[in-house]
Design a protein around this nucleic acid. Structure first.
Lengths: 230, 230, 230, 230
DNA sequence: AATGAATGAGCTTTCATTCAT
DNA sequence: CATGAATGAAAGCTCATTCAT
């Protein structure tokens, strides 16, 4: 292997020849499998709910045995937690992807809020987000700490972010709400709205982008109508 | 039966001896027992959730046997549905108890909305309402028809009612929303708000009346700020 | 039924006709079943030991289902305890059947000790006694309270009884041990002896009555040789 | 390899590279590892009992993997047997360490018996001895050959030894038992006594040296009282 | 109508053992 | 030889449901 020097990972190949995978790679493999399991578990939890989902069916869909499942997660509860944390990680990624606050000084609040609202609601009506909420609410009595993780990673974080933005906008004199944190909560409540509520109850099919646009448009209108400074 | 007038209770006793109660009375008795069962089931469903609640524990708390339960409800699922319908009936009663629309012509919209909002949110954070929501959401995948019943009896009905009121107020020239149905949804979304969201996740204790007043006050302010006509 | 007055239980027959078994009879039935279960469990515990015995195999040998087993005993442990207590009850019956102490004043200590020793050892080498000891010793670490029950019902109680007898005999001047309780323990230890020890290890077949006689004879000889007063 | 003499340890290293250790050395290494495994297994068997001890926990405590375990012992049962044999070997060592019979001609039987008894009982109440007994008894049904190994190496061998001593003492005219083998068994039964019985049932804490002294003292007294020649 | 014993399928979990690397 | 992932059988236990009384 002539390019071994150019590609240090080539040496890893040599190690493999000796039957000794480097630890890092072993761990990576294990992590990949863990993720695969969590992904299958997610599907089953979605379809059946936590309580009704059985480890047997998860194992069957995985194509492996129950024993293997338990080699990776010490209990059904632990598997559920792993899924919740994984899903919250995705929320978190989304929340941290908000537009920079420095744009707050800029004039076009309407555009910013509209963009934010559409992305927020657009994410909420994602199948994975809706099912996550359903699972978390369903188990809220039994496992309140999961609800905590969920809230902080998702809605809670989003509100903090939006609050900061609104405060900047207020300081710049573009809006005038009495309490920016409350205003942020109100805006997101308006975005969530009835569309989302009904969808979360499985009463209507997944909202179309047009419906989302409309819902957010009305939310922005009311919000700026009430708090905007002309 | 000649002596019925003299000793009405005697009649019952005699009928019992013969094992033949008048049909109407039998039905009444059966219905009373059904209600008693549903009430016990409600408690257990609240405490344990649908899946974890066992017919045994319901029977035990009832002081009867499992067999008796099955004499009244043919399955656990049927018992659960009976409870949901019962609970929704209570919602319905609440909804029909909204203030009369004829007050709409009256000037004090703020007072009407505040009153409505406080009663709405106050009811939402009731233990029975929150648990009902949790159960319905948890089973929304498995049994979407339950969600339907729930929505129509509760939030859906409330929106219809409020829409009518807002239209009257708009006709009277007190407010000017572009779409009254949408406005009604927005107002209720604002009332539900984050307080309710967090409570439904078991993240905070039951909101106090003062907290409810504050949340609704801010909702009314934003709503009238946006849609009101000065 | 003409003799109903003479035989009040005849009325019970009438109750049965109405489909209502008297509570006492129901309980008796339940108790009978419990005993039957314990008896089957005993066999399986004997053959496999506590840990290796499975509820499935007990149920199978019973001809019933596992569910039924758990209707009568809430866990495998509970079933084991029920068996231990039952077996100890038999020990207790045997212990309380010792010859009356008032015979102690009588002269023939040799005959009394011989009789006692033979009955004691004869019972020890009973299959049920030997298996009981094996089970109790095997689980002594895990469940010391079972060992306590066993000891008090069997060996402990026997020693107390024998001690009383020896004290009477000492008062009557027939023997002269420095400490009667210790002497009682020594006598029983001698009776138990190596014969029993080896049998409890499954090393030899069940001792014959002749072997028992011989072992006890030598025990009595040594005991009276050491403590007797010529 | 010319430099082998200069660096003796280098030899080993070189051999390792070639994967060829001298056979004797390989075997020694293997045996050492086997012993280490058996020692760890012993601890786990002590703490959990045979059935409850898992190969996983043994491997974990060993710091190795289950696969390695199976490289050295082909099954859990085989590992258990190896432990029993090892433990019995220790018993054997102890037995062969008994005082020399040539002392038999000497006069002080009391001292000899006392010394023997205390060492015997002292060893019996050792943690390893008591747990060994418990394990052997627990598995006596399933694996009678283990009990055989155990008995021959321990109590059985001791009796043979003591019998020889007593015969010498009898020949010397110091004692006069009708049957020395039986007398030996009786003496050890007396030593074992109730103290040991109760300890083996986990009913009392480990006997103190003082308690052992007392128990043996009374055994010697009774034994010499019965069989001694004044 | 009421009872409660009986059932059997199914649950989560554990474990000895095997095998590719 | 060491590793640890994978397996599958079986364990203890629960529960909705049925049925004879």
């Amino acid at each position: 292997m002539a390019d071994a020097k150019l590609d240090p990972e080539g040496e890893v190949g040599a190690a493999e020849l000796k039957g000794k995978l480097p630890k890092a790679r072993l761990d990576a493999r294990r992590d990949a499998k863990r993720e695969a399991i969590v992904d299958v578990a997610r599907q089953v939890f979605f379809e059946e709910g936590y309580a009704a989902a059985s480890m047997s069916s998860i194992a069957a869909r995985l194509g492996g045995s129950k024993g293997t499942l338990y080699n990776y997660f010490k209990s059904k509860e632990a598997l559920f937690e792993a899924y919740i944390e994984h899903a919250c990680g995705q929320w978190r990624a989304w929340v941290f992807d908000l537009p920079d606050d420095d744009a707050a000084g800029g004039a076009d609040i309407e555009a910013v809020l509209t963009d934010l609202g559409e992305r927020f609601l657009g994410h909420l009506v994602t199948e994975s987000a809706i099912r996550l909420l359903q699972l978390v609410i369903a188990e809220a009595q039994r496992a309140p700490e999961l609800a905590h993780i969920f809230y902080d990673a998702g809605p809670g974080g989003g509100i903090a972010r939006l609050t900061a933005y609104l405060e900047a906008a207020k300081a710049a004199g573009h809006i005038d709400p009495p309490d920016c944190r409350m205003a942020a909560q109100q805006f997101l409540s308006l975005c969530r709205g009835h569309l989302y509520f009904r969808y979360s109850l499985n009463l209507i099919p997944r909202p179309t982008p047009a419906e989302i646009k409309a819902e957010v448009g009305r939310a922005v209108a009311l919000f700026l109508g009430g708090y905007g400074r002309p």
